[in-house]
């Protein structure tokens, strides 16, 4: 289990390799990667600025990861979330989960992403022709948590 909040890009393949290095008990690794889109709500996006709350961010991600490992049989997990200025196409976030069988890996990865979106202190500001615009939180993201109750 580990969490990184960083400016730098990351390599998904290298992360998967590291997650299962030296182990033969892992049967499934699921990864989710979130990317910056070039449009939002019909508007062109030139860049995305991600702000976070140093300290609380790392704690909240570690808490979500720990909660996932109590609910599913996880052998390893990894969360990477970037901050700073990102261009369309850039990777924003990666969640990887490893378990003996795929069911636990799939479900726990979704659980971590759902909680991350509604609980981890990150804020996105989209660069548009009309200037920077803070992204509004979506009700659907909050509602996505209900299925895990």
């Amino acid at each position: 289990m580990s969490v990184s909040v960083q400016l730098e890009d990351f390599d998904v393949g290298a992360e998967i390799t590291a997650l299962s290095a030296g182990r033969t008990d892992i049967g499934a690794v699921v990864t989710f990667t979130g990317l910056v889109r070039s449009t939002a709500g019909g508007q062109d996006i030139s860049d995305m600025e991600l702000e976070h709350y140093p300290g609380m961010t790392e704690k909240s991600l570690a808490k979500i990861e720990a909660e996932a490992s109590t609910r599913w049989s996880l052998q390893a997990s990894r969360i990477i979330h970037r901050y700073g200025k990102l261009l369309p196409g850039a990777k924003i976030v990666m969640v990887a989960t490893a378990s003996p069988h795929r069911g636990d890996a799939f479900e726990s990865a979704e659980f971590i992403m759902d909680y991350l979106k509604s609980r981890a202190p990150f804020w996105k500001k989209e660069g548009t022709a009309g200037g920077g615009k803070w992204v509004d939180a979506r009700d659907a993201d909050e509602e996505a948590l209900d299925r895990w109750d």
Binding site: M56, H81, L116, K117, A120, F122, W123, A137
Partner: peptide
């Protein structure tokens, strides 16, 4: 609002709290 880096509520007590943070609903991921 977060109190000492934990999400909290408007009605929460500030007794013993060292750090208060105010921010919009989060939009990461």
């Amino acid at each position: 609002v977060a109190l000492d880096q934990e999400l909290s509520e408007l009605g929460a007590s500030l007794v013993g709290v060292r750090e208060v943070a105010f921010f919009p609903p989060v939009t990461g991921g």
